[in-house]
Each structure stands twice: as structure tokens, then as C-alpha cells.
């Protein structure tokens, strides 16, 4: 896009907005490299893990001591003016979300972070666990099925996230340390 086209674009945006624009702001962007690469992933209940170790993990899962064998945690903020709406949404819809997840995908709740050392990870965490790697793919497929209750609920949940540039966000993937292979 040439400069004159960009000027036309920014003028149109400026004229189309309501209210007084904020003062000009130029902020440097500091890239963060967020690869972990400490552990090789392996499913604790699949080949490569001795059967006696699998038994321990399976028992801890069945007894609901472990969150799961494969977990992901989404961190994000919700704008303060939407916090009450978000809380009410969770009260109504978390039970529905639990029921609507595809087989092998488990919604483990959304949590408010009341103390953390991580400033940029977000004030909320949504925790998922998966019965297998295939289940991660199943979650993506179900999320894309726009006619499904799951896609609708997930869209509403994610819709509360503060998506503005620079807003705190994070994503982590966990596996039980008891069967993790560190290199």
C-alpha cells in the first residue's frame, strides 16, 4: 500500500470514529520469544512410557488428582467494565460448556488469578485437558463447526478476552512431570 493510499485509509478511519481521538502515541514493540523447548512431548498413556508408570498416571487421572494427561491453559484479560458480565456468563454457561465439549476434551474451568508473579500472562486462566493428541484436533474441528453449541459457547467465552494490541495474553501446554522426558 502506497503512502497516499495509507493516508486516505487513516483519514477515513479518523473521520469515521465517534468522539475525540486520543493523543498521538508511538510505542516500541518488544518481541518476546516464547518457545519452551525444555521437554519433549509424550502422551503419558501411550508407547514410550513404561506400563507401570502409565498405571500410576491412569490412577491419578481416574481419582481426579491430576488435571489431565495433556493440558492447555489460556491466559487473558477481560476489560474491567465487562468483568461482572463475564462472571454471570460463567455461572450460566460453564455447566453447558462442560456438556458440549467433544469427546476426549475436558473443560476444567476458568479461574481468576488473585496472585501471580507473571504480569503479562493475564488475569484469568481457562484450563483444558485432553485424553489424547487427537482430542486437541477434535477441539479445533468442533470450534470451527459454527452450528454447534460448543462453537457458540467457545466463541462467547473467547469474545470476552481483551484483544487489544499489547493486552496480556498467554498460552501454556502441560504434561505430567512424572512421565515427562527432559532433554
Amino acid at each position: 500500500m502506497q503512502q497516499e493510499d495509507r493516508l486516505a485509509t487513516v483519514k477515513a478511519l479518523m473521520q469515521g470514529r465517534a468522539g475525540v481521538p486520543g493523543a498521538p502515541s508511538v510505542e516500541p514493540i518488544e518481541p518476546h520469544i516464547r518457545s519452551g523447548a525444555t521437554f519433549l512431548f509424550r502422551d503419558p498413556l501411550k508407547r514410550g512410557v513404561p506400563s507401570d508408570e502409565q498405571d500410576v498416571v491412569r490412577r491419578l487421572i481416574d481419582d481426579k488428582h491430576y488435571v489431565g494427561t495433556i493440558c492447555s491453559i489460556w491466559g487473558y484479560n477481560v476489560l474491567p467494565e465487562r468483568a461482572q458480565e463475564f462472571r454471570r456468563w460463567l455461572l450460566v454457561n460453564e455447566p453447558r460448556l462442560v456438556q458440549a465439549t467433544p469427546p476426549g476434551v475436558f473443560y476444567k474451568g476458568t479461574y481468576a488469578v488473585w496472585i501471580s508473579t507473571e504480569k503479562e500472562a493475564g488475569e484469568y486462566r481457562t484450563v483444558w485437558s485432553y485424553a489424547s493428541l487427537q482430542a486437541i484436533q477434535d477441539l479445533s474441528e468442533a470450534a470451527a463447526d459454527q452450528g454447534s453449541t460448543f462453537a457458540q459457547l467457545l466463541g462467547e467465552l473467547v469474545g470476552f478476552q481483551d484483544r487489544r494490541p499489547g493486552a496480556p495474553r498467554s498460552q501454556e501446554h502441560w504434561q505430567p512431570a512424572s512421565t515427562a522426558h527432559r532433554f
Binding site: 503512502q3 497516499e4 493516508l7 478511519l13 470514529r17 498521538p24 508511538v26
Partner: peptide, 18 residues
């Protein structure tokens, strides 16, 4: 080598610098 993010007002000033 550095990245900058300009808000709408700064972006307008930047494009007017022609």
C-alpha cells in the same frame, strides 16, 4: 532494527509527513 506501534492519531501524523 526496531518495531513501533502507532495509534490512529500518530499514524495520521506519520502519513501526513509527505
Amino acid at each position: 532494527p526496531k518495531l513501533y506501534m502507532l495509534n490512529l492519531a500518530a499514524w495520521l501524523v506519520f502519513e501526513l509527513c509527505d
